[in-house]
Design a binder for these strands. Structure first.
Lengths: 335, 335
DNA sequence: CGGAGGGATTGAATCGTTTCATGCGGGGGT
DNA sequence: ACCCCCGCATGAAACGATTCAATCCCTCCG
């Protein structure tokens, strides 16, 4: 069965293509009897609209793209989940793209998305060098909302969580527990989230005279966490607490420490970031810095559609949420 | 800056649109000097190809859709990850769709994908009622590969893992540990994976005279696991082991049991399914049935492109992998 | 009875590519 | 000197939908 077009339907129903189009898009403008005939023809031929043709004419697609750093990270799938219902109900379609924290993959995705004339873009940029690429889309009238990325630089709407504050919360918690030296794990520091969380951590450490070791050469996943532990244990004097840039790293670190027979939290405390669902279920339930994941996605989608509907007269908004400390067993010992 | 088209570029470079098209698609067919001029014009105008127009002409898009049951389940993101590189290198683009185990959402996605004239489809159908919808696509010459779903019924390529065998492995492991009664958690049974895993479990239980309690009214996520535990504890005589239809359920069950002060594995053993990365990192490291997740995705993509390139003369292939028992602490006690 | 108005339908133009037959001029082979 | 072929560029015809001015036919009103 070869695919049939509106023309075929029109012919089968004995009307013009214009009428078929009307049946599909403004049914009330068509007489009862005609409409029925056309619908019968559609059913008989198994006709399916051709979206390319439609988009070509419309000049825009109804795809909303979300570019995330890592689809395998539950944090991001939760963000996507938050955005989806809103996009859906606005008649849009969500496309998820995974940059894998790789600038080149992000680049490739953005190129394709631009060629597709997407309706809008929610993106967590890999690093600052993304700005230029993103500006390109914006220059071509594709609204962009930055997700989990401070406003500042970019002339766009954004939703974010105050990562510097999150870093402070984590560090303060550890310092209060009596730790005199702390390790930070996660990188590379070109990732803004890493930089900010580290910065917050640093201010607290400096203010309270706590030694801070930084392991920023490891990647933001479970393997990275294990690696960080290896590096840490090579130090002459290992810190007694570990602040991980996200929960995946923290879970990896927990595994690494356990493998080395190091007790958590007695010999080394761990705190993560994001508070993904798995954090609470870990071997040692992980303390973490909670972000409002779903709300981040929901709000981002909301801002996007506001921008779309307001058009030119739109002024950008930057929404910032506050993170929250969740203390669990992995930091439950006072030194 | 309003978006510019090939016509604009052609004009700016003093050539015809045909030549511009050639510069983009078959650069060697164009004289050095001309090519340079055109490229300069492209850069100057910030021209970006319009994919809709291209697709309209081509009759097909280069999107390969993957429809999964749950993006928040690491099992599926791993499958997607496995498929991605292959699709990429074939010049395709991956689109991930989440059906959320909801027939209606699956339906909606399939409709949109058909309108988009996707290049091909990898899908884990929600249940048997999906068949009809999928046949529609196939009838319109869209190749379909079934993922994690036995061949049997459908005239399509497929990759799957022998879930019945997986169920047997799990049950046998528990029986060998000396458990005289087993609970199964996960549902609904309309999901083929659930049905098969349960079936395998059943045969072993019957063969060895072990009592089997089935909790198939709970959903396939962490919350479902907790629910199953509640139901189980209401029994006059609770089983001593719990086989969960996937690892998310198992993690939830582990939390539930812990909340009730029930020791795992001493008072109740748990075994999950999928062996996602988080299983090993759980409070009590989870025994599980491992599936070759990435390979499932990779092979699926491979079959898809084989079918695409072979065209009409293609004969479907059904690849079945064997699952594997991974025993960890959550079942590490003999009764 | 004529004309105005309105509902239903039509047909053609349009969106931006790709493709293909056609044209053109110059070199090489016979 | 002739032909042929080759490399390069052109222009027009698709692809399939949407949109809008134009048309047609009726009814209703004066």
């Amino acid at each position: 069965m070869t695919t049939s077009s509106m023309k075929d339907v029109a012919q089968a129903a004995g009307v013009s293509v214009g009428t078929v189009s009307n049946v599909l898009n403004r049914p009330d403008a068509v007489a009862e009897e005609t409409r029925r005939r056309v619908q019968a023809a559609i059913a008989k031929l198994g006709y399916v609209r051709n979206d390319s043709a439609r988009q070509l004419r419309a000049g825009r697609s109804r795809n909303v793209a979300i570019v995330v750093l890592d689809v395998a990270n539950p944090f991001f799938t939760d963000v996507v989940r938050g955005a989806e219902p809103l996009v859906d109900s606005a008649g849009g379609v969500v496309t998820v793209c995974d940059s894998g924290e790789d600038v080149r993959r992000e680049q490739r995705h953005l190129e394709i998305l631009e060629e597709q004339r997407v309706l809008g873009l929610l993106i967590t940029p890999v690093d600052d060098s993304s700005a230029e690429r993103i500006e390109r889309l914006a220059a071509h009238d594709i609204p962009v909302v930055l997700v989990d990325r401070g406003a500042g630089l970019h002339p766009h709407c954004s939703v974010a969580v105050d990562d510097v504050h999150g870093g402070r919360l984590a560090a303060r918690h550890l310092v209060e527990r009596g730790h005199g030296s702390i390790a930070f794990a996660g990188g590379p520091p070109s990732i803004p989230q890493v930089r900010d969380r580290l910065a917050g951590c640093r201010t607290v450490c400096e203010a309270s005279g706590v030694r801070l070791e930084e392991f920023t050469s490891v990647s933001m996943n479970v393997a990275g966490g294990r690696q960080a532990v290896e590096q840490m244990l090579r130090l002459p004097e290992a810190p007694t607490a570990l602040f991980c840039a996200n929960d995946l790293v923290a879970l990896g670190a927990l595994q690494g420490l356990t493998m080395h027979g190091i007790k958590v939290p007695e010999e080394c405390a761990i705190i993560g970031y994001d508070d993904i669902d798995f954090a609470a279920a870990a071997a040692v339930p992980l303390s973490s810095i909670r972000q409002p994941r779903a709300q981040l996605g929901r709000t981002a989608a909301q801002l996007l559609f506001e921008e779309i509907s307001e058009g030119k007269g739109h002024t950008h908004r930057n929404v910032v949420f506050q993170p929250e400390l969740v203390a669990r067993a992995s930091t439950a010992v006072d030194l």
